[in-house]
Computed example of a mutant assay.
Amino acid sequence: MYYAEGTHEPIIAPATFEQAKERLRKIAQQTANRKKPSRSAFSGLIRCGIICGDCGAFFGSKVWNSTSKYRRVIWRCNNKFKGEHKCETPHLYEETIKTRFVGAFNAILADKDSALENCRLMQSTLTDCSGLDAEIKSLLEEIDVVTELTKRCIAENSQTAQNQEEYAARYNGFVERYEKAKTRVEELHSIKNVRQAQADAIGAFMFEVQELDTLSEFDNKLWLTVIDTVTVHADGRMTFKFQGSTVIDA
Rank of each mutant, 00 (worst) to 15 (best):
K80G: 01
E9F: 09
T127R: 13
P37A: 08
K86M: 09
E187D: 15
G244V: 12
A155F: 04
I12T: 12
Y171K: 14
H85D: 03
T89S: 08
F105H: 12
N106R: 12
W75K: 01
A250P: 00
V102N: 10
C129M: 14
N118M: 15
M238N: 09
A204G: 09
F81P: 00
V226R: 10
I11H: 12
K112N: 11
Y93N: 15
V63G: 04
T160N: 02
Q210V: 13
S130C: 02
N163Q: 02
V185T: 14
T160L: 01
K192Q: 14
T225V: 13
H85R: 15
E18Q: 08
E156M: 08
L109S: 08
S38L: 03
A110S: 13
L140E: 13
L121F: 11
A169D: 02
E186W: 11
G60R: 01
N78W: 00
S124F: 05
G60H: 01
T96H: 07
L222W: 09
G6D: 06
D128W: 03
I202T: 14
C48N: 05
D213K: 15
R72F: 04
C153E: 01
T127F: 06
Y178S: 03
I143L: 14
D111V: 12
N33Y: 11
D113V: 12
A15Y: 03
A107R: 10
N33V: 07
D54R: 14
W223H: 08
G6N: 08
R23A: 06
D228T: 13
F218S: 11
E95P: 06
I108P: 02
